[in-house]
Simulated scan of single mutants.
Amino acid sequence: MTTYATVTWRKARRSGGNGNCVEVAAWRKATRSGGDGNCLEVTADGTAILIRDSKYLRDPDNDAALQPIMSVSIAQWQTFLSVAAGRSAEATEPRITIHADGSATLTAADGLTLDYTQPEWEAFSLGAMDGEFDDLADLWPSASLATA
Rank of each mutant, 00 (worst) to 15 (best):
A84P: 03
V83M: 05
W121H: 05
D59P: 05
V22G: 05
D36S: 10
R13K: 07
D138N: 11
D138Y: 04
V42N: 01
Y56K: 04
E120L: 02
R52E: 07
A25Q: 09
R58L: 10
I96R: 01
K29H: 03
S144A: 13
A84W: 00
G46T: 07
V42C: 14
T31I: 07
G102P: 01
Y116S: 02
D36Y: 05
A5Y: 12
S144E: 14
D130S: 11
S82V: 02
A25P: 12
Q76V: 11
A48E: 14
S33G: 05
R87G: 07
A123T: 02
A128V: 08
A12F: 08
G86N: 03
A143E: 11
T107F: 04
A89M: 15
R95D: 15
G127S: 09
V22K: 13
A123H: 00
A146E: 01
G19L: 11
D59Y: 05
F124K: 03
A85C: 12
G37K: 11
V83P: 01
F124N: 04
L106P: 01
L112M: 15
I49N: 01
T117V: 08
R32C: 01
A91I: 13
T2V: 14
L136D: 01
K11S: 06
A104K: 04
F133T: 01
S144C: 07
I96V: 12
E23F: 00
W121K: 01
S103Y: 08
D110P: 03
R87S: 14
D36K: 03
K11D: 07
T43M: 05
Q76D: 15
T117Y: 06
A5N: 14
D101E: 05
Q78Y: 10
G17A: 11
G19E: 08
N18W: 07
Q118L: 09
C39V: 02
A146S: 15
L81I: 10
T105V: 13
A84D: 02
E120D: 10
G127C: 06
L136T: 04
P141T: 05
P141M: 06
L66A: 15
A48W: 03
I98Y: 00
V42D: 02
G102D: 04
M129T: 12
P94H: 12
G131W: 07
T147W: 06
N20M: 12
D61R: 14
E23P: 02
T107N: 06
V7P: 03
A26M: 12
I98A: 00
T31P: 02
D101Y: 07
V24Y: 08
L66V: 08
M129Y: 09
A91M: 13
L50Y: 08
Q76K: 11
S82I: 00
G111K: 03
S71Q: 15
K55H: 12
W9F: 09
G131Y: 08
C39F: 05
I98C: 00
S142Y: 04
D59T: 09
D130K: 02
L40E: 02
S142L: 05
D63S: 13
R52W: 06
A30D: 04
W9I: 08
I74W: 02
G35V: 08
S73F: 09
S103C: 08
D130C: 07
L106F: 03
D59M: 07
T113S: 15
T47V: 12
M129W: 04
W27F: 13
T31R: 12
W77D: 03
S142N: 10
A104I: 09
Y56N: 06
A123G: 05
I98D: 00
L114M: 08
K29F: 04
